[in-house]
């Protein structure tokens, strides 16, 4: 009796389309990943406005201040009361002056929570004005809903 030869039968799937798709997905998510928005915090729910348009040109020396509805400012990872901002703002002012810039040319971006009392926002603006900051950008979400 003739002996039958044994063959290893392995079914190999073609991996190329799957790898193609996976790389395309990675490229898609990489492009959309926004590392530049690090100063944004989920805690701040911005008010909405239909007229808010993203700035055409990058802001000059922006200083971003996140104001919570509790009246504290998230600055360099710390929650500070508005009165405690005096020193960090003075440091920012000194840094600007050291680089031959004036605090009046810098833009303070105020990202205030929509439920923050307006008086607290005014106190924050006043604190910045006391340190010679003049330009303010009140940041809002672009939306078609205008009235509450």
């Amino acid at each position: 009796m003739a002996k039958r030869k044994k063959f290893d039968v392995t079914a190999e799937g073609d991996m190329t389309p799957m790898i193609d798709m996976t790389f395309q997905l990675i490229a898609f998510f990489m492009v959309l990943l926004n590392f530049g928005e690090a100063e944004h915090t989920e805690e701040i729910k911005l008010p909405k406005s239909a007229l808010a348009k993203p700035p055409d040109a990058p802001l000059v020396s922006p200083l971003v201040l996140n104001l919570t509805d509790q009246g504290t400012v998230l600055f360099n990872g710390e929650y500070l009361p508005i009165k405690a901002l005096r020193q960090p703002l003075a440091v920012e002012k000194a840094l600007l002056q050291a680089s031959n810039k004036s605090p009046a040319d810098a833009t303070v971006v105020i990202r205030a929570h929509r439920d923050t009392p307006a008086g607290v926002v005014q106190e924050l603006i006043q604190e910045c004005q006391d340190n010679s900051f003049e330009r303010f950008a009140l940041r809002v979400l672009q939306s078609q809903e205008t009235e509450p």
Partner: peptide, 26 residues
């Protein structure tokens, strides 16, 4: 796949933000 999972997990839809520019000297 690990890379894919990382990017999927860190993906966040960024809402468009805009500014109202106000010049208010002291």
């Amino acid at each position: 796949f690990q890379l894919l999972v990382f990017f999927v997990m860190s993906f966040k839809i960024v809402e468009v933000e805009g500014d109202f520019n106000v010049k208010m000297p002291a």
